[in-house]
Amino acid sequence: MKETFASGAADPAPSGIRPGPPGPAALAAKVRTMAPSMTRSMQRVAEAVAGDPAGCAQLTVTGLAERTGTSEATVVRTSRLLGYPGYRDLRLALAGLAAQQESGAAPSVTADIAVDDPIADVVAKLAHDEQQTLADTAAALDTAQVEAAVTALAAARRIDVYGVGASGLVSQDLAQKLLRIGFVAHAHADPHLAVTNAVQLRAGDVALAITHSGRTVDVIEPLRVAFDHGATTIAITGRPDGEVAQYADHVLTTSTARESELRPAAMSSRTSQLLVVDCLFIGVAQRTYETAAPALSASYEALAHRHTPRPTR
């Protein structure tokens, strides 16, 4: 049985793999992802650095605290929550982000979709947000954690995937992809069935939970059971500080576009989750190419027959 972690500050990498501080491109993604779960005072700091990275990069910790109406301790806590050892490291990233924005490498944020927007504007705004979500996820994704997750999946005897709602659709996508290359993989949307199956997992098996919020009980509970029974556990989440990370050997962080009245978080989070799922699938297929390629070809051939009209008499 594995050792669980105390609630609160979850250890995002129990396997010993530690991500470095986010680079300038990842900083913007980190702010967008983490701000909704911060305290109001920390949000003010995050919004300030995201809105004016050039100006904030020139401020001392005292100056930023005064500008945001917070304390120096809040500024330091916000820096650490964003992945930096201290405020000095955050200032360096802010300077880099400001340089990117000045050169045009960092795109501006478009306006929210309005009720009276013509469909052409809706298409343009959604396309921009989708692109930004994918770019943010790629920038913030810890490739060492992805590599470790791929290694575990490629060697797994059995793979259980947990997700509900929009995340449940993503879990089904991953499971069916793995099935097509010869893996024993099941997606569980029913929480009772998920826990029942998690009890059967052992070392050599993998349990993967998908939850944008990081606190979906119906997903966390089966992951906890799998963790306690010795399975390797993976979490795909937009909240790496959420409860799900306490029971995950490997945490893969997703980003999300800004939520609006007409575009709930479930829509934008699904985009980033699917990117991570595709990265995992391709990584596993690469590791197991000798068996994956024939299995994939066989599945294509089997499905092709279903699209061929049967001859009529």
Results as ranks from 00 to 15, higher is better:
Asp205Met: 09
Leu262Met: 13
Glu130Phe: 05
Glu102Met: 02
Arg80Trp: 04
Leu262Lys: 05
Ala154Tyr: 08
Cys56Leu: 07
Ala209Gln: 05
Ala46Lys: 03
Gln100Arg: 13
Pro240Met: 08
Ala73Asn: 01
Leu27Arg: 00
Gln286Pro: 00
Ala127Ile: 00
Asp278Val: 02
Val61Lys: 10
Ala48Ser: 13
Ala99Tyr: 09
Leu97Ala: 13
His212Ser: 06
Gly86Glu: 12
Asp278Arg: 01
Arg310Cys: 12
Arg18Gly: 05
Gln131Trp: 09
Asp173Trp: 08
Ser299Gly: 02
Thr253Gly: 04
Ser269Leu: 08
Ala185Asn: 06
Val76Ile: 11
Ser299Glu: 15
Ala154Ser: 15
Ala198Phe: 06
Gly182Val: 09
Thr308Asp: 11
Ala105Asp: 15
Ala298Leu: 14
Ala266Tyr: 02
Ala185Ile: 04
Leu81Gly: 01
Thr291Ile: 12
Ala148Gly: 03
Glu301Phe: 01
Leu193Pro: 01
Thr4Lys: 08
Asp121Leu: 11
Ser41Cys: 07
Glu221Cys: 00
Tyr289Lys: 15
Ala46Asn: 02
Gly23Lys: 11
Asp278Cys: 00
Thr216Leu: 11
Phe5Glu: 05
Ser255Leu: 01
Ala48Leu: 11
His188Tyr: 15
Arg306Leu: 15
Arg91Lys: 13
Val170Gly: 00
Thr308Arg: 15
Ser71Glu: 06
Arg215Ala: 02
His307Ala: 14
Leu92Arg: 15
Ala295His: 12
Gly165Cys: 09
Thr211Asn: 01
Val276Asn: 02
Ala139Val: 13
Thr39Cys: 08
Cys56Phe: 06
Ala194Trp: 09
Gly168Ser: 11
Pro311Ile: 05
Gln43Asn: 12
Ile282Phe: 06
His229Leu: 02
Ser272Ile: 13
Gly55Arg: 03
Asp89Cys: 04
Ala245Tyr: 03
Thr232Pro: 06
Ala298Gln: 14
Gly8Phe: 04
Thr60Ser: 15
Asp11His: 11
Ser269Pro: 03
Ser213Asn: 10
Pro311Lys: 14
Ala135Gln: 11
Ser272Val: 05
Gly204Phe: 11
Arg224Glu: 08
Lys2Met: 04
Ile282Pro: 00
Ala13Tyr: 15
Arg158Pro: 02
Val277Ser: 00
Gly238Pro: 05
Thr216Ile: 09
Ala13Arg: 14
Ala149Asn: 00
Pro294Ala: 10
Val45Asn: 03
Tyr87Ser: 00
Asp241Met: 04
Gly165Met: 08
Ala65Gln: 02
Lys30Ser: 14
Ala46Ile: 09
Thr78Leu: 06
Ala114Val: 02
Ile159Val: 15
Tyr87Arg: 03
Arg313Phe: 09
Thr110Ser: 06
Ala166Tyr: 13
Ala189Asn: 12
Met38Gln: 03
Leu169Arg: 01
Val276Phe: 04
Gly163Asn: 07
Gly104Ile: 09
Leu274His: 01
Gly230Cys: 07
Leu141Pro: 12
Val75Asp: 05
Phe183Trp: 04
Gly51Trp: 14
Ala140Glu: 05
Ala154Val: 10
Thr233Gln: 03
Ala203Cys: 07
Gly182Trp: 10
Ala139His: 11
Phe227Ser: 01
His128Asp: 10
